[in-house]
């Protein structure tokens, strides 16, 4: 069973969202997603300053057998990409909810109101549904 921390929000496309103290967001891919991809060999993160729309492909995570886009769950401005992943893409595998975060985002005004993010229990249901 994959790990789904209770304090995070989730999307159906397997991104997680953490709200930081200053109201900005940290985004990554879930434990389930990294497990499905296998050992990551390359991660491409967005550059700081880029403005993204909700649902826009922002990052790419690549294993030897697959490459997947990671989507922005909400609109906003990218504050930073995780530079450590260039040398250590495996952090996404080993610490998907910690050092393996992908980018930080300042949500656009009102952006959070328009999107439906899942709580841990609902995301768990998504995973169970996919398993069948």
């Amino acid at each position: 069973m994959s790990n789904v921390p209770a304090d995070l929000k989730y999307t159906r496309s397997h991104e997680w969202i953490r709200t930081l103290a200053d109201g900005t967001l940290e985004i990554g891919v879930t434990d389930h997603a990294q497990d499905a991809l296998g050992d990551l060999v390359f991660v491409e993160v967005p550059e700081a300053g880029r403005t993204v729309k909700a649902g826009e492909a922002c990052a790419v995570v690549e294993s030897v057998k697959a490459a997947s886009d990671v989507y922005a769950p909400v609109a906003g401005e990218v504050l930073a990409g995780n530079a450590q992943l260039a040398a250590q893409p495996d952090l996404v595998n080993s610490q998907p909810y910690g050092a393996g975060w992908l980018w930080r985002l300042k949500p656009a005004a009102g952006a959070l109101a328009g999107v439906e993010l899942l709580g841990a229990a609902d995301y768990q249901k998504v995973l169970e549904a996919e398993a069948h």
Binding site: V41, K65, A66, A67
Partner: peptide, 14 residues
């Protein structure tokens, strides 16, 4: 063969 995730048999339309 390496970096195959760039290629059509994995990345298809992308």
């Amino acid at each position: 063969l390496t970096l195959q995730a760039r290629e059509q048999h994995i990345r298809r339309a992308k």
